[in-house]
């Protein structure tokens, strides 16, 4: 198979564009759910060596609430929706209307976990449907799963598949910003898309920019 090192700037730009379309969809869904202005954008698509990936989320040991979904279909991959644990608590408190939910405490509040999973589900679903419209590839998320732990411990799990083919990941990193009345950023999350190596080849192929040129 082709090596990921064949990826050029042009390919990354295309991924960024697709990412932005998916993020737009997901932002609309989340805004409606929360009745707030949510802004999502893809600041960059990067080829990141494994040992630098944690820098993207502010350090290896930062505790985050992460929802994991596996993408099935024509272009398999892993997806993570990550929020600092305090932000996740706040989001779910608003969503469920229960201000006692605190994800930094064990055991995890079941109602809260279920609500957060649902947020992840909606985000992933709207993101993926934009992606599959654009690429004409069939992509479906598995049911979401939640973990609250160190960033790196969670991310590394999503890299296992990729790690069999190389030592770096293509990371489509999406910033999720909740905007206040005066357009200020109130909270920040990350949405990671980690396509399996074969999937990237398939995605580029279906977009008419194959990797092996």
């Amino acid at each position: 198979m082709k090596d990921l090192s064949d990826i050029r700037l042009e390919h990354l730009d295309i991924l960024k564009e697709i990412g932005n379309i998916g993020a737009g969809n997901a932002a609309t869904a989340l805004s409606q759910m929360l009745n707030k202005t949510i802004d999502m954008k893809v600041p960059a698509v990067k080829v990141v060596p494994f040992n630098e990936i944690s820098n993207l989320v502010g350090g290896e040991e930062v505790v985050v609430a992460a929802i994991f979904l596996r993408i099935k279909g024509d272009a398999p991959g892993n997806m993570f929706f990550m929020l600092p644990v305090d932000e996740a608590s706040r989001l779910v408190q608003q969503l469920v209307g229960d201000s006692t939910i605190d994800f930094s405490e064990e055991p995890i509040n079941e109602m809260g976990a279920s609500a957060l999973n649902e947020v992840g589900n909606i985000l992933a679903g709207s993101y993926l449907s934009a992606l599959s419209d654009f690429t004409k590839l069939n992509m479906q998320p598995t049911p979401p799963d939640l973990a609250i732990d160190m960033t790196m411990a969670i991310l590394s799990f999503g890299l296992v598949e990729l790690s069999q083919a190389g030592d770096f990941a293509i990371v489509i990193d999406t910033e999720i910003n909740e905007l206040g009345e005066d357009e200020t950023i109130q909270s920040k999350g990350h949405f990671f898309l980690l396509p399996d190596p074969e999937s990237l080849i398939r995605i580029f192929h279906s977009l008419g920019v194959p990797l092996d040129e």
């Binding site: 994991f68 596996r70 598995t142 411990a153 799990f157 296992v160």
Partner: peptide, 16 residues
């Protein structure tokens, strides 16, 4: 060697 996501589907990767 933890299983970070307990309830994930039968994906072999979850047993890594």
């Amino acid at each position: 060697g933890a299983q970070m996501f307990k309830f994930s589907s039968s994906n072999e990767a979850t047993r890594i």
